[in-house]
Structures are given as C-alpha cells and as structure tokens.
Design a protein around this nucleic acid. Structure first.
Lengths: 230, 230
DNA sequence: CGTCGGTTTGATCTAGTTCAACCGCCGTGG
DNA sequence: CCACGGCGGTTGAACTAGATCAAACCGACG
C-alpha cells in the first residue's frame, strides 16, 4: 500500500485494539442512517459507498463518495448525531471501530488524531469542489468533473489496475450528485459517450479519457499527497 | 460567552502562547488567497467573512461564511495548501496563530485537538447542508434557506441582540452562494421581501421572520450544541 | 412469460439566464 | 459646486438549459 503513510508500531497496536471487527454489506445496503444517534465509526476496507441527504419530499442529494481508506460516520462520532445517510454502491467490507474510545485516541495518539483531522479536512476540500461544480458548472462540465473526480479517487487507492475501471453507479446516482433530473443526466452522459470520453455499461461507468474529462470540466485534479490510513 | 465550552487553565495558557497577535482587516479585503502555500491560521474575533472558489473564467462559488469563533485556514494548516480564498464581508478582527505549532498542539493538547476536529466536522456538516440546498432546492427555497442559515449562525454567537440583525452581504454574494444569476437572485429576494420574511437594506439583509424562512426552505436548523472555542 | 429497474428518446414546458436599460447613491476630480 | 463614473439594486423582454411528461426498450430474474 504505497499510497498511505506508514504507521509506527505503537500506532499499529492502538489501531488493532481500536478495531472491533469487520462488517460486510451487500450493494444497496444502508450503512448508516440519518438521525442515528449512536452512530458507529467505520473505515472502508474495500468497495464503494456514498453519503447523501434527502428533503422531506424525497429529493435526494449525494454529497460525496467513500472509497477504501475513507472514514464513515466521523461526524456522528465527533459531534454526536448523523445528519446524513450512507449507502453501499457495491459490496463493501468495513472495519468497525469503538466509538467510545475516541477520547482515548485523542488523549494518547496525537499522530492518529492528526490523521483524523487530516481526513476531515480532505473531505471538506472535496465538498468545496463539489459545491463549486453544482453551483457554477454547466450540466456537461459537471458530469465530466464527476467522472474525472471519481476516476482520480479510484486511481489514488490503486483501483485502476490492469483491467478497465468500472465505477459502480447508476444514472440516478449521477443525477442526484449533479443536482439534475435523470432525463437530462442521461442526455448529458450520452454526449460524453459520443465524445468518447466515457463508456456506459449496465450500471457502471467506464472512464476512457480522464485527461479529456478534466479539460472539459476545467478541473486541475486533486493535488494528492501521501495520505494517512486509519 | 455562554455559547462556548469553558477552557481548563492549562488550555488557556497554551492558547495564549499559540496566539501570535491580532490582525484587523477592512471590509472587502482578502484574508487568504487560493494557492497560498504558507497559509496562516486564524480565528475570527469579530466580523463576517466568506470562503469561495472561482473557475478560470471568473465564475465564483461561495462555499460558506465565517463568523466569530470560526477557524480560517485550517485546510492550509493541515494539508498544506489553500484550495480556496477567504474575503472579509465587514471589518474583521482576526486572532493569528502560529501554524508551525500545530504538531505541538496535537501532541500535548488533546482537548484542543479534539476541538479542532469538532470544528472541521461542523464545517463539513454545513457544507453538506449547502450542497443539498444548491443541488436540490428551488431558487426561492435556496434563498430562504441561506438567510435562515446565516441568521441562525449569527444568533449562535450572540449577534442577534437588541437591535435588528443586519447581515452584511450584497445580492451578488447571495447569487454566488446560491448558484444563481444576479438578476434572478434579485427577483427571488423581492419575493421574500413581499412575503415580509426579510427586508433588504443598502448592502445588507435584515431578517424579519426566521421561522417563516425555515418553513419555506423545509429546513429544521442546526442542532446547535455547546461548541468549542479556540 | 410478466415484471421491474435501469436506460433511452422525443415533445412540451418553465425556471432561471442573458441582454439591456435605468435609478439612486456616493466618492472623485475638475 | 457640479459633472462623472462606478457600484448596488431594479425591472422588463427575449431566450435557453434543463425539467417534466410520456412512452418504449432491454436484460435480468422469479
């Protein structure tokens, strides 16, 4: 795992003891629900998930996606209650942590505390970018940005290996991420297909030309540095 | 300051030594610019500011607002580079911290470390809410949400005293927050005025009916708890 | 073989954009 | 003292990106 920063032996020991077990959920399963008070804290070991909020009348907004190495439920662990839900996009393997040992972690593991803050800041940066996109980019730019963004994140955790990367999302997910209707999302994605930037599969998106997508969206990409892993 | 959690004497001592000085900037001044590598870390002591990103062609998206007690430049301090800019909306007094003492803080001040993470999580939650708004609410709902949101935040730091609260923003700021054009923003705000939910002043917004705004936006408000202060 | 979720396509409609003025206020310079 | 320019706000008209409505297709699956 060359993508992550190395641990000290002591940190490793703490993380092991912090870990309570593993959890496997199938695609489409709810990992955390909005309003859950005693939310748990997880790390993704493998698979894709997404965070979202809904309005009373059912309108849904996808806030961000979670990939291996990302924390799930941090807001709940730090502030107390979850204000969003998390759902699995693919089969997901989670590492379950003991939430009540958070204070211990902050007291005795400054390195890990910093890592958690680092991950929170990174999430914030991604949200900034998504907000810019939804607020100010056109439908075509938004779609291009989203796919390029997901491609980069997948690449950053080594998911873009020998065989082509398939992002496990439906067009409904894309629509709910971009703030568009499904119909218009479909028409927009077709344009990306026509331009040979992506290929659309059954319920998945294949990225053909990441550079072309970034250019279309006028997006420079995440300045990805060595990241912490918890 | 009943809104904030109390400090231990030792924490107080650390914060004092962490503080390097104060900085006063006038309305409209840039506090931090995107791309600044050696970004500083601030807390707002008084005044309003906003964070934003821009696309190459000038399209601007306001990401969030900063009020007294909020950290500015945390992303830069934790990850290294600023990916957004911050500008003052009113005269702002800042408390300047020594960025290079962050490691010391994490090593020796678990309480403060936790507070920083808490603030980062809160920022994330606000961004989630803003993203939901921009992505899925209508123009009228968005505008109502924004004003109610800013009102609540101002109230949470005691800005809503005896005399009416004036939020120091122009309609251009509102437009760039909501992802709308100025023209349509103007027409939308007029509707809020007609409904007697707000009053518009020279370059400021007065909130007349916070509850009515929240209802219109179908927004429950921030579940505001006792917050940390740094 | 029917049904259902995901995708596709065309037609119509509308929320929000763009264009174009204009107003009032204020600070600046002649 | 006044003319001028710029910024913030306002308003109407024309336009368009994207929404909504409607229907059909397609593969998987019971």
């Amino acid at each position: 795992m060359t993508h992550f920063r190395p641990f000290s032996p002591e940190e490793l020991k703490f993380v092991s003891s912090f870990k309570r077990g593993e959890l496997v959920v199938e695609a489409g399963a709810m990992i955390l629900a909005e309003g859950a008070h005693s939310a748990q804290l997880f790390t993704i070991l493998s698979g894709w998930a997404f965070r979202f909020k809904t309005l009373e009348d059912g309108r849904r907004q996808i806030l961000n996606y979670s990939l291996p190495g990302d924390l799930i439920g941090l807001q709940g662990s730090i502030i107390g209650a979850m204000e969003h839900s998390v759902e699995a996009l693919s089969p997901v393997v989670l590492c379950v942590f003991q939430r009540d040992r958070m204070p211990d972690l902050f007291r005795n593991q400054p390195g890990l505390s910093f890592d958690i803050t680092w991950l929170a800041s990174r999430e914030e940066r991604m949200l900034d970018e998504n907000l810019l996109s939804v607020g100010r980019r056109s439908a075509l730019e938004r779609a291009a940005y989203l796919v390029a963004f997901l491609y980069q994140r997948a690449a950053a955790v080594g998911l873009t290996g020998q065989k082509a990367l398939l992002i496990p999302i439906t067009q409904q997910h894309v629509a709910d991420t971009l703030g568009l209707s499904i119909v218009h999302t479909n028409k927009t994605l077709r344009k990306l297909v026509e331009r040979k930037l992506i290929r659309w599969h059954d319920r998945a998106c294949e990225v053909l030309d990441p550079r072309g997508l970034m250019e279309l969206a006028a997006w420079e990409g995440l300045p990805e540095t060595r990241r912490p892993l918890i």
